[in-house]
Amino acid sequence: MPVRRGHVAPQNTFLDTIIRKFEGQSRKFIIANARVENCAVIYCNDGFCELCGYSRAEVMQRPCTCDFLHGPRTQRRAAAQIAQALLGAEERKVEIAFYRKDGSCFLCLVDVVPVKNEDGAVIMFILNFEVVMEKDMVGSPAHDTNHRGPPTSWLAPGRAKTFRLKLPALLALTARESSVRSGGAGGAGAPGAVVVDVDLTPAAPSSESLALDEVTAMDNHVAGLGPAEERRALVGPGSPPRSAPGQLPSPRAHSLNPDASGSSCSLARTRSRESCASVRRASSADDIEAMRAGVLPPPPRHASTGAMHPLRSGLLNSTSDSDLVRYRTISKIPQITLNFVDLKGDPFLASPTSDREIIAPKIKERTHNVTEKVTQVLSLGADVLPEYKLQAPRIHRWTILHYSPFKAVWDWLILLLVIYTAVFTPYSAAFLLKETEEGPPATECGYACQPLAVVDLIVDIMFIVDILINFRTTYVNANEEVVSHPGRIAVHYFKGWFLIDMVAAIPFDLLI
């Protein structure tokens, strides 16, 4: 008679799926529990143990900040960024110097990925580790590398530091407007667009060049630039800015003055950032001319202004700041037409079709709590990747769950009947059967004279019903998954307890 339990259901295979997918890609990662103190490590794979030199037993239950890997060259700011990422709910990448158990130093890129439950609360953290440099290539500990984003994938490793954006290309926007319009339909740009040429040739750093990471940081200074100062900065030398009595002219307006920039070969870094931020506020060169004239017309309804409409929906549905990093990277690809469009465009503009998908598509409701890094690593669709929660398995109709209350009560009843059979069957065979043979035949009273025979008949009927119930009862397979398919249940029961239950259900007393 089957006594099969499996009270692990309803099970959740999400954690096993993450481990299996990460292991298949030869990654070095740990999984931490966000619900406990210090976000203790609950799993670390073999790749991480080989990377740091510690065994799994030495890593388990330690804080996922990996303070046991810190050393003299470990930056405090990087460690603080990892700790801050564990307090938030967004994906974050941090470069930090770690030390192995043998004392060797290596520069590592740590990717902190939160995993949320159905309520939107962070319950786990996945920390992925990628070695960037070994100890002989690690720089000085005073050099802070965590304020910069990861290198873009479309640049060669040897040319990542030679990417320079020439400031004269930004200063000569109005001069290039006529050349853009003359391109017409034969050019790649839309009317009114501004073409910015980027020099990728390796050259020595000069005062006129600005690194790509500095251009990325310009967006942080746009908020500090007032509207009046932006307007004066875009007017140009024809209309000098008016300053109040006793007030000095704005240095932001002076930063885009061609006369002032041409007199000296070098520009201050602050002026460069502010000038680029001011130019980015204009949607095209037409807006710059309109600002000089004193009238700013409404933005025209053409394809170039609607190019950012799908980007707005993608940004609203993005799951991490990696989408913004990807957008900034692609927006700086050289030799393309940049349409400086305000994100607050007309909502009635139709979304044009684009061959290049900048932001990841909208994630469906079932995966809105899973970050983009987890979705990318697992390579699963929205119909396959579940949320991290207890999910009731989908069972067929008329199927009994093996952990249901009805099955528990039924098993206790069958257990009592088995005990009765084990006690009274030998007793009936030894004593009652002998008395029946010696006594007179009682054929007239039937079952009324033999109450134990009636009980034995009921017990046999219950055993037959138990066999039928076992054909529709779920079970737990070797992978700790609840199986509810009727065919698989029948095959599993035939290979197991079916023969024993059938022999126990045969009414031998009635056959004798």
Results as ranks from 00 to 15, higher is better:
2 P>W: 06
4 R>M: 15
7 H>K: 06
7 H>Q: 10
8 V>Q: 15
17 T>S: 07
18 I>P: 01
28 K>G: 06
29 F>Q: 01
31 I>K: 01
32 A>Q: 01
41 V>C: 03
46 D>Q: 09
47 G>I: 01
47 G>P: 01
55 S>Y: 01
56 R>S: 03
56 R>P: 09
60 M>F: 08
62 R>S: 12
66 C>Q: 01
69 L>H: 01
77 R>T: 13
77 R>W: 13
78 A>F: 01
79 A>I: 13
82 I>G: 01
90 E>L: 13
92 R>S: 13
92 R>Y: 05
96 I>F: 01
100 R>H: 14
104 S>V: 07
104 S>T: 14
116 K>G: 07
116 K>S: 13
117 N>Q: 13
128 N>W: 06
137 M>C: 05
138 V>F: 05
142 A>D: 06
144 D>N: 15
148 R>H: 05
149 G>F: 09
154 W>L: 13
159 R>F: 13
159 R>I: 06
166 K>E: 09
168 P>W: 01
169 A>D: 06
171 L>V: 10
175 A>Q: 15
176 R>N: 05
178 S>P: 12
182 S>A: 06
183 G>V: 06
184 G>A: 15
185 A>M: 14
186 G>M: 05
186 G>Q: 15
189 G>P: 15
195 V>F: 03
204 A>C: 05
209 S>H: 15
214 E>V: 06
216 T>S: 14
220 N>R: 07
221 H>W: 10
224 G>N: 06
225 L>A: 06
226 G>I: 15
240 P>T: 14
251 P>I: 05
252 R>E: 15
252 R>H: 13
254 H>E: 15
254 H>W: 15
256 L>C: 15
259 D>E: 14
277 A>E: 12
283 S>A: 08
284 S>F: 07
293 A>M: 15
299 P>K: 07
304 S>V: 14
305 T>A: 14
309 H>N: 14
320 S>Y: 11
323 D>H: 14
323 D>G: 12
324 L>H: 14
325 V>F: 11
331 S>I: 01
337 T>M: 14
342 D>Q: 05
346 D>N: 04
349 L>Y: 07
356 R>D: 07
357 E>W: 06
357 E>G: 05
360 A>T: 12
361 P>W: 01
363 I>G: 05
374 V>H: 15
380 L>G: 04
380 L>Y: 03
381 G>V: 08
